[in-house]
Every structure is written in C-alpha cells, then in structure tokens.
C-alpha cells in the first residue's frame, strides 16, 4: 500500500490528551471525533488536513491515556499514515487494532519539515520525502503484528480462535 500526502510535523511525546481531548470522549463516532483531532496541539489541523496526509512526529507518539479514540480520530480526519521515531505501546496496539497505518522511521522524522510531500510504501518498507528527494527504510513489523494486519485485524484473528463458541 502506498500513501502520498503532505507532512504535518510534531515533536516528541505527543500525548493522547492533545490528540483527542477528554472533553470530546462522550462519543465513539469517528466523524465526531475527527472534528477535534489534534485540537490541543494544533488548533488549525482539522482545517488544514487533506485526505492522504501524513503525521510525522518524534519519539513516544501517543503516550498517556489508552483511549482508542486517538487513532480513530486521526484516521477519520483523513490522515493516511503516522510516521514517528517511536510509538507509546498502547497507541501502537490501538493503531494496529483500528487499522491506522503506522511506521517507525526515525531518520525520516529528523529531516521532515511541515508541508513536505511524503510518500510511504508500506509493503516496500520505505518512507520517501519527495520534497527533499530522500528515501529511508522503515522498521518492519514483528512477524506476529504483520500476521494480525494480514488477517484483517485483531478481532478477525480472535474470531478464528474462538470459533463457534462466542461468534
């Protein structure tokens, strides 16, 4: 899968409280949540973001609360993929589980500037900064994570494990 869009760059330790503030957690409707994505770190984000855009951020993206509303809001806002130097662990699980593509690629993060055109090729494992003419290798998912993604997500996997009992 290949995504191409403009970079929205942020620093390290972007927490889930700024990705989707708690005051909006009285719903789990993706479109409602998307209206407030990144609101407390970047009030203009929702007006600026275009389908296919890329969030590029430093270490520990998604730290803090376990709210799955965070990857849901980002995905519903139109963002195609998040590239970060590292991800906080609950956000990492939640992104995989909700189908938000994420990529670990510290070098791409270091070089990227706001508005750069980024091209992310998930299958090839590359992140290209089209504006700067540079290509980077992203970290591959561990085999089990790749299997979950290939099977269509955690719940599909669990359905195959639970069989006829609960499904």
């Amino acid at each position: 899968m290949i995504f191409e869009g403009k970079a929205h760059t942020y620093g390290r330790d972007v927490d889930t409280d700024v990705i989707i503030p708690a005051r909006y957690l009285t719903t789990n409707d993706p479109d409602e949540l998307a209206k407030h994505a990144m609101e407390d770190i970047d009030a203009e984000f929702v007006a600026r973001v275009r389908p296919g855009d890329v969030i590029v951020a430093g270490e520990n993206f998604g730290c803090g609360s376990s709210r799955e509303h965070a990857p849901v809001a980002i995905r519903a806002s139109g963002v195609a993929v998040v590239v970060a130097a590292s991800f906080a662990r609950i956000f990492y699980r939640n992104a995989i589980n909700t189908g938000l593509p994420i990529v670990v690629c510290a070098d791409a993060v270091t070089d990227a500037e706001n508005g750069d055109v980024m091209r992310v090729d998930l299958s090839a494992g590359t992140v290209e900064n089209v504006t700067k003419g540079k290509t980077y290798r992203s970290e591959a998912f561990p085999p089990f994570m790749q299997e979950l993604i290939d099977r269509g997500g955690l719940l599909e996997y669990v359905k195959s494990r639970v069989g006829g009992e609960g499904a």
Partner: peptide, 20 residues
C-alpha cells in the same frame, strides 16, 4: 497492563490476550 477498547473487546470474547 493497559490496552485499548478493541483489545478489551477481544479479551471479553476470547479470555486471552496476546502480549509481547
């Protein structure tokens, strides 16, 4: 340990969780 809502849903059905 903390997880998200989908992991919670999966564990409610399965009684298990995958962990590294």
């Amino acid at each position: 340990t903390g997880v998200g809502s989908t992991d919670f849903a999966a564990a409610m059905a399965w009684g298990h969780v995958w962990l590294r």
